[in-house]
């Protein structure tokens, strides 16, 4: 019975063979490759012969205050993100939705989406040059009679820089989903509110926001699900020794310790810890989203 089904669709299986192999090799082999996190992996003798050390590496970093600094930095960037970067596109979408001229609205959208398509390197390049001691921003500050600020080498500025540049790049793009939800709002609701004498602000507060609240909730949950991940590719380009205090996160540390420092087993252990916690968070967030009636990916 099953065999007959398999035989009838043999071409589908043939097609699927390559993608299957791809996921096996580039996703599942690395997953199981995390075995080296429990070894003292030695590239020369290979992972079959490398000695097992159990949870040695995990103990080492869990007792290391620096590791908790990495966790703190990862979480702080996410907390800042939720507080500042998350509401930004919602506010912008509400404002865009209030624009009277459709053509002007489209123009603003087109312009605001643009930064989303720039690469991390370009964004970071602009940050590094504009915030340099002789950069655009410092020149402006000086011309206003202020003092130069060491934005890039002062650890207390890092989170601000990271979040503000994130907002600049993603605020427009982030509006898409909220704008779509806003177009779904029944115009009769607005009509009725106007009849009752509600002004624009009241219409936004009592109609627009409640109508997009489910979408906001889902986005918030997905955001929380990604609490263990940050844009490490950007951080890698922006941080330096003097900003590690606030900028170093788990993945940048894994990269430095593992690939630059060749401490493969220890770095894998830290990476595995990150993957496991991230997995629990994402799955938890997805469960919650589903319970709230939101569509998830599958």
């Amino acid at each position: 019975m099953i065999l007959r089904k398999l035989a009838r669709n043999k071409y589908l299986y043939m097609m699927f063979a390559l993608p299957f192999l791809y996921f096996a090799i580039f996703h599942y082999v690395p997953m199981f490759g995390n075995i080296i996190a429990f070894q003292n992996y030695n590239v020369v003798i290979g992972f079959v012969h490398s000695p097992f050390v159990g949870f040695e590496h995990f103990k080492e970093f869990l007792y290391d205050p620096y590791f908790w600094k990495l966790v703190r930095n990862t979480l702080m960037l996410n907390v800042y993100g939720i507080v500042f970067a998350f509401p930004a596109p919602i506010v912008l979408a509400l404002l865009l939705n209030e624009l009277r001229s459709k053509r002007f609205k489209r123009l603003v959208q087109s312009v605001a989406y643009l930064p989303h398509f720039l690469s991390t390197v370009v964004i970071s390049g602009m940050i590094v040059n504009y915030l340099a001691y002789d950069g655009m921003l410092n020149r402006f500050i000086e011309s206003m009679g202020g003092e130069q600020v060491q934005f890039l080498s002062d650890a207390s500025w890092f989170r601000t820089i990271y979040i503000v540049s994130d907002i600049w790049q993603q605020i427009g793009w982030g509006t898409i989903i909220y704008l779509a939800a806003l177009t779904g709002v029944d115009p009769q609701l607005y009509e009725a509110a106007r009849m009752d004498g509600a002004n624009r602000l009241k219409q936004v507060l009592h109609i627009a926001i409640p109508c997009i609240l489910p979408v906001i909730t889902i986005m918030l949950l997905l955001n929380i699900g990604n609490f263990m991940t940050v844009g490490y590719e950007k951080i890698l380009l922006l941080y330096n020794g003097s900003t590690y205090e606030t900028a170093d996160v788990i993945q940048t540390f894994v990269y430095r310790r593992g690939l630059l420092g060749s401490d493969l087993s220890f770095a894998s252990a830290v990476g595995l810890f990150q993957s496991v916690v991230a997995f629990v968070l994402v799955v938890g967030a997805n469960r919650l989203t589903k319970r709230l009636g939101g569509a998830t990916l599958w």
Partner: peptide
């Protein structure tokens, strides 16, 4: 995610 290091080794 399998992680940066194991994928690099693959």
């Amino acid at each position: 995610d399998g992680g940066i290091i194991p994928r690099y080794l693959v």
